[in-house]
């Protein structure tokens, strides 16, 4: 079997609090681009690992605006421009009425945009991990420290991780 290059080391911890402490310590050591694995979203973890991406909320907002405008424009075109009809003597540009469907679809597009952004941005995030980490979805927590060239060897990182209380270290 050929030697696989170790890309990162993952340290296993028992509890969410332990995980948070470990992450903070590791960041204190100067490591960046950390990741973690947990069975549920741990409050404070995204900040701890330095996650600051706000693309998803922006995508949602943009989706709402675009969806709203598109549907509204469509309604205006259908009911006021392409085939205008006198319906109950109401205005052709019945904007309160048109706004309703636009709002509904806007919300839907916002949600879809958020989900699409998430799926797209997350597409490779979970890829490095395999069945070895199956307990990450059950009851174990992991910190993932990338092996950046130069600064530390994998073994050194491993020792460091055991030092701060990891139950186990796995090579990724």
């Amino acid at each position: 079997m050929a030697e696989r290059r170790v890309w990162a080391l993952a340290a296993e911890f028992r509890g969410a609090d332990d995980l948070l402490d470990a992450v903070r310590q590791i960041r204190g050591f100067g490591f960046r681009d950390l990741d973690a694995l947990s069975p549920f979203p741990v409050p404070g973890l995204p900040e701890a690992i330095g996650f600051e991406d706000r693309t998803v909320p922006y995508a949602a907002a943009a989706g709402f605006v675009l969806g709203f405008l598109a549907v509204f424009a469509g309604e205006v075109w259908m009911n006021a421009i392409d085939y205008p009809l006198n319906v109950a003597g109401t205005a052709l540009l019945a904007w309160p009425a048109f706004a309703y469907a636009a709002f509904q679809v806007g919300c839907l597009v916002a949600a879809a945009a958020a989900v699409a952004a998430m799926l797209w941005l997350n597409r490779r995030v979970n890829a490095p991990y395999d069945e070895a980490f199956r307990r990450a979805t059950q009851d174990r927590f992991f910190v993932v420290v990338p092996v950046a060239d130069g600064r530390f060897t994998p073994r050194e990182i491993g020792d460091l991780l055991y030092g701060i209380g990891a139950a186990r270290v796995i090579e990724v």
Partner: peptide, 20 residues
Amino acid sequence: HCEQAPCELGCPVNATVHGP
């Protein structure tokens, strides 16, 4: 034959509309 007919308002498919 109301000029502002409630029936026209309710139809979702423009099956009842007002003529000129």
